[in-house]
Amino acid sequence: MKIGIPNALLYYYYGPFWTEFFKELGAEVVVSHSTDKKTVDMGIGVSVPEICVPIKIFNGHVLQLLKSGVDYVFIPRMASVEKGKYFCPKFMGLPDMARHSIPGVAGKLLTMDVQSRSENIFSPKMYYSIAEKLAVSDKRIELACRKGAEVWRKFRKLGLGGRTIAEAFEGLKNPNRIKEPVKIDGPKIGLLGYVYDVYDEFVSMNVTERLRQLGINVLTFEMLSNRELKRYIKKMKKSLFWTFSDKLLGGAYKMFRERSVDGVIHVTAFGCGPDAFLGKLLELESEDSGIPFMTVRIDEHTGENHLQTRVEAFVDMLKRKTVPVGDAV
């Protein structure tokens, strides 16, 4: 049995768990290839114009998998992974949107509800609902959840050690050749954005590596522990309603208030509702702290030259700002 997993959205965070989970159930796991222009164009073709580009890209990956001949495409309904916090409505309605907008997916849709009190989404109870469709026992589901959880924890440990998501994925593939976290003798930028905006190299134009090539150390939210992310959020009378927006805000507060970075860049998709709230809070925090801040909005039309010019200008400004007066040219 071939099970397809779209290489988009929360695959960048939970992909290692889902991949190992289905392998342990005896399935052949097919992950769609990295986003390219064809993927984006296919997704646009089956999406309403108003929806954000990450969903359009996701739809393109689903079509990719259907064309590859998989038996099922795994599209979980992501509801909540924290008490009182929820995912964007598009995530909660993702299986339904796919069923009604992507030709051929209805008969191959494999879905279940993800609702947990923590980001550890490994409770077998959530996955029992797909046991019959996959012709496996509940016992197999339980074992697969344990194995998948082990892999995911290794993945997160690599990230918490200062590695990017891309480097953590590579570390899982080659555990005997895990690279040390990159350290550069230069300014540090807090790169804030949902994992699917920052690490989809096509849509973000590999902004993480671009910054490193410009002599910048990069700090992202997934390099911080949940304890660090919640430190300042706990003091708020009311935090954000959305799980990952809250993580980004917690990371931003830590960066700005502890002055642990020289600048902050927020990568956001055009038309993202939760980011409309988050972005304003980041602007206010930047004004209070005096730490430079820039927003980079991406969509299917974003050009490489546009992003490169803005990032290079921001980095140049930071470097000039951090150079001692006596050393300035």
Rank of each mutant, 00 (worst) to 15 (best):
G4V: 07
G15I: 12
F17I: 07
W18L: 13
F21M: 05
L25E: 06
G26M: 08
D36S: 06
K37T: 14
G43S: 10
I44V: 15
P54A: 08
I57G: 05
F58M: 12
G60V: 11
L65M: 13
L65A: 00
L66F: 13
K67E: 12
K67D: 09
V70M: 10
D71Y: 06
D71F: 00
F74I: 01
I75H: 08
P76W: 09
M78Y: 03
V81Q: 09
P95G: 03
D96V: 12
H100S: 12
S101K: 10
I102M: 08
G104V: 05
A106W: 00
L110R: 08
K125H: 09
Y127H: 06
S129M: 09
S129I: 07
S137F: 00
S137R: 00
I141W: 02
C145L: 02
C145G: 03
C145P: 06
K154W: 07
G159E: 15
G159A: 15
L160P: 13
E170T: 13
E170G: 11
I184E: 10
L191E: 04
G193Q: 01
V195H: 09
V195R: 02
Y199S: 14
V218R: 08
M223T: 04
Y232T: 11
K234P: 03
K238T: 12
T243F: 05
S245Y: 07
L248S: 10
R259S: 10
S260Q: 12
V264S: 01
G271D: 09
G279P: 03
E287G: 06
E287Y: 05
D288H: 08
P292Y: 03
F293P: 10
T295P: 13
I298C: 02
L307P: 12
A313G: 07
K319R: 08
V323L: 15
P324D: 08
G326Y: 02
A328V: 14
V329H: 01
V329W: 12
V329M: 11
